[in-house]
């Protein structure tokens, strides 16, 4: 494998966003790019990352390899990279280390690190392609604010999407709160629009602790996409460049 990333910042931010949710992960490398799928310890949430080969230049993967990496170790090494360093990942066949180099564009500074790999036999879950009943695209900062504000009142949030819009409601010991958003197009700045597409009304309840955790990825994209259908996990997707993405799936809570 040889994969060169123009900006180390993307990998730094992706790892920073998931390192508190999952610990040991397989980075599955093949000719379409680098994928990662992992569940949190309680098997309530699933992270699915895909860094397409187009996000790298150059990208070469002669044989499929799984790089078992502890994210705490990877975080320690990535801390040594500046956001605008050129980052290159290298690994041989049946590797026992993954090699990372950070080149600073202006000065002739080159750092090189090897991280020991682990054998991680992670069950790979089949994520079915779903036609979601409701898709909401909104500023990632707005979603972060909603989850943060409501998590102060309760550990669960009910998300209800109708043709009027989407409503986040929570009730807790000190009281209750709700945030309602309607379809809104910001003519000056499309990144601030709220787009809602709905084929049928949905209403589900989720853990706010996990949603707040997912919002660590807000730095990756100024928009976030929420996909909902009744009785299936919520999809929270942060789109990256070249159709790469970081997706979080969260199982719903049932029964009030």
């Amino acid at each position: 494998l040889e994969a060169r990333l123009e900006q180390a910042a993307m990998l730094k931010r992706v790892v920073d966003a998931i390192k508190d949710l999952v610990q040991d992960c397989n980075f599955d490398c093949n000719d379409s790019g680098i994928a990662l799928q992992a569940m949190d310890n309680s098997h309530v949430a699933l992270v699915s990352m895909m860094l397409k080969s187009e996000s790298f230049s150059p990208f070469r993967c002669d044989r499929n390899i799984a790089l078992g990496i502890n994210l705490t170790s990877l975080t320690k090494v990535l801390r040594a990279a500046q956001g605008d360093d050129i980052l290159t990942l290298k690994a041989e066949d049946a590797p026992d280390v993954v090699n990372l180099t950070f080149e600073s564009p202006e000065s002739d500074r080159l750092s090189e690190y090897d991280i020991k790999l682990m054998d991680i036999d992670q069950e790979h879950l089949g994520i079915p392609d779903t036609e979601y009943a409701a898709t909401i695209t909104l500023p990632s900062s707005e979603f972060s604010r909603i989850t943060r504000d409501l998590s102060a009142l309760s550990e669960s949030v009910a998300i209800e999407c109708t043709k009027e819009g989407v409503k986040f409601t929570c009730t807790g010991d000190i009281g209750n709160g709700s945030v309602s958003l309607r379809q809104h197009t910001n003519v000056e700045n499309d990144a601030k629009s709220v787009d809602i597409s709905l084929t049928e009304p949905v209403a589900l309840t989720f853990s706010l602790k996990y949603l707040v955790n997912f919002c660590k990825a807000a730095g990756l994209s100024d928009r976030v996409r929420l996909c909902l259908s009744n009785e299936v996990p919520l999809l929270v997707e942060y789109g990256l460049s070249n159709n790469s993405y970081l997706r979080f799936y969260l199982a719903p809570k049932i029964g009030d």
């Binding site: 069950e123 879950l125 089949g126 309840t205 799936y249 199982a251």
Partner: peptide, 14 residues
């Protein structure tokens, strides 16, 4: 109190 489900209930092993 609503009860939390696990992801495996929805995403089976392929």
């Amino acid at each position: 109190r609503p009860s939390q489900q696990t992801i495996g209930k929805f995403f089976g092993n392929p």
